[in-house]
Every structure is written in structure tokens, then in C-alpha cells.
């Protein structure tokens, strides 16, 4: 290091300091990861190679890849749960993100009452729990529920929804759309971060609304849209509460999803090893999807800072 010529030393030490600052900045997180999260995560990875019941670790036996082998080749529930989870994820992410985007665009203005509308649209994402799921069971009632009643007004005979093998999963997707308020908030925050002068400049240049939307709104919002997309994907793959409360995976296996499977195996069947293996397969699935999204984002996500994902 001593041999570096003085003119370059300054830039090098700047760079070095930046690197030190980086570690200081992420230091708290890194310590927390080592102390609180990393251990349990690694532990669950180890458990996935054992037949641990979840109670007495001393009784656990190393079984190698047996859990994974059984899941992949010998457990049809795994494939059913995976298929259902993908279905749910696809539906709720696409419609959820699109819906939240449209509502955020519409609500991103100071119309009279827009504050109230924001609160209303945000509300269902925080009002949850058992009693609310009873409301949903009632809304989905094939005979007297509001959904089928509305459909009947336009001459459509609604399905049996949660009581039907074909419609139970779409019903859960529909319910998930009710919680798009959280995504809406993030997108609103993103929209508000776009500097107004950009639009004013565009207008002076005589740009059309559509080109403003395409050339300013979408690129400036893309980092946030990307966040919403990734987070929604992760959350949708981990859907659990609605299934546990409303359908318990049924009818049949129509709404049987991976995390419900994980929960049951771990705490109802006392097969923590098997459950951990299942969780790590889920991890792998989401990890690959996230990597694909990261990779894909290079084509459409634009960072004002010029960084890449």
C-alpha cells in the first residue's frame, strides 16, 4: 500500500472508507443476523436432514436426504400443495399488484375526499382475524352471499366458492385482493417521491399524458414496483392464515398450500425434520423466483442513482 503514488492514494482511501462505512451501516443488521436469525435458519437446515419430532433433539436421527427424497418422489401432497401455491401466488400477485397500482394512481391526487378513500382502501389490510373471516364465509355464501347476489343481478349464477373444489382457490385469490391496501401505500409513497418538475418540464415540451406516464411515472416508480412485486411473491408463497381459518386446505386438497402443510407436519404430526425439509424446498422455490425477478428487473427497473439491481 505504501508504494501507491500519492495522487491515487486519496481516491483509494475514499473508496476504502466507503467500504468501511458500508460495513458500519449494515453492522447492526449483520450482528442481529449472526445473533438472532442466522442460527435458527441454519438449525432448521440441519433439522431437514433428521427425523426430529420437534421435541427431544437427543432422540433425533440423521436421515440424510430421506426427507427430501420422500417429499419429491413419494408424497403426492407436496405436489398438490406446490401447484396450489403457485396458482394462488400467480393470481394474487398479478391482480394484487395491478390493482394496487391503479388505485394508487387514482388516489395520488388531492381530490376532495381522497384522504378518506385512502383510509377506506387501506382498511381491509389491517382488519383481519377470525371474525373477519366469518364475514368472508358469509360473502361467499352461494345462496345469500353478497358476491353471488351481485352476480345474479347481471344474470350469472355464481359458483359454490369455498364449497367447491374448482372455486375455493380462486375465492382465496379474490379475498387476497381485498388486502391490496398495503401495496397501495407503498406505491403511493413511491408516486409522491417523483419530483413534480419532471412533469412540468414534460408538459412544457408538450408531452402527451400517455408519454408522461410511460416515460416519467413508470420508470421513476419502477424500483418501488419491483419491491412490491418481490414482496408480494414472497408473501403469497407463504399464505397460511386464511387457509388455516377459512378452509383448512379443503374441500379435499383444493386449497392445500405449502405453509399449511409445513405447519401441520411440524406441530400436528410432530415431524419437524420433514417439515423443515419442506420449508427448505419452499425456500428454494422462492429463492429461484426472486433471482429471476432480480435478473428480469435489469430490463425494466430504472434507478435514478444509475445503480443496477
Amino acid at each position: 500500500m505504501q508504494t501507491i503514488i500519492p495522487s491515487k492514494r486519496r481516491s483509494f482511501s475514499l473508496k476504502q472508507r466507503e467500504e468501511i462505512d458500508f460495513y458500519l451501516a449494515i453492522g447492526l443488521w449483520l450482528i442481529g443476523f449472526i445473533l438472532f436469525t442466522g442460527g435458527p435458519i441454519l438449525a432448521s437446515l440441519l433439522f431437514s436432514f433428521t427425523d426430529w419430532t420437534g421435541v427431544n433433539i437427543s432422540k433425533a436421527k440423521w436421515v440424510g436426504l430421506a426427507n427430501f427424497h420422500q417429499l419429491l418422489f413419494d408424497d403426492k401432497l407436496f405436489w398438490i400443495a406446490t401447484r396450489n401455491t403457485f396458482y394462488y401466488s400467480f393470481g394474487s400477485v398479478i391482480f394484487g399488484t395491478l390493482g394496487a397500482f391503479i388505485i394508487a394512481l387514482l388516489l395520488n391526487q388531492k381530490l376532495p375526499g381522497s384522504t378518506l378513500l385512502r383510509v377506506i382502501y387501506y382498511l381491509p389490510s389491517i382488519a383481519s382475524g377470525v371474525a373477519i373471516s366469518i364475514l368472508w364465509l358469509w360473502l361467499f355464501n352461494p345462496q345469500s352471499g353478497l358476491i353471488n347476489y351481485t352476480l345474479s343481478l347481471v344474470g350469472i349464477k355464481g359458483p359454490m366458492w369455498l364449497g367447491s373444489q374448482q372455486w375455493a382457490l380462486p375465492a382465496l385469490v379474490l379475498k387476497s385482493l381485498w388486502g391490496i391496501g398495503a401495496n397501495m401505500v407503498i406505491l403511493l409513497a413511491g408516486l409522491q417521491g417523483i419530483p413534480v418538475p419532471l412533469y412540468e418540464a414534460a408538459r412544457i415540451d408538450g408531452a402527451s399524458k400517455w408519454s408522461e406516464f410511460r416515460n416519467i411515472t413508470v420508470p421513476m416508480l419502477s424500483p418501488v414496483l419491483f419491491f412490491v412485486l418481490v414482496i408480494s411473491t414472497i408473501a403469497s408463497f407463504q399464505i397460511f392464515t386464511d387457509v388455516r381459518v377459512m378452509t383448512q386446505g379443503g374441500p379435499g386438497t383444493a386449497t392445500y398450500v405449502i405453509v399449511y402443510f409445513i405447519y401441520q407436519t411440524a406441530f400436528e404430526y410432530l415431524k419437524m425434520g420433514y417439515s423443515s425439509a419442506l420449508a427448505w424446498l419452499l425456500f428454494l422455490i422462492i429463492f429461484i423466483l426472486t433471482l429471476l425477478q432480480l435478473w428480469g428487473s435489469r430490463r425494466w427497473v430504472y434507478y435514478e442513482s444509475g445503480e443496477r439491481t
Binding site: G38, A43, L46
Partner: peptide, 14 residues
């Protein structure tokens, strides 16, 4: 994860 956490994890798990 292996290097820095194995100790903690094993202690925690066992």
C-alpha cells in the same frame, strides 16, 4: 452461516 453460526445454532438446537 456455517462458520459463524454453527456454534450458536447447535447450542440453540441441542
Amino acid at each position: 452461516a456455517g462458520v459463524s453460526l454453527a456454534g450458536t445454532a447447535l447450542l440453540a438446537a441441542c
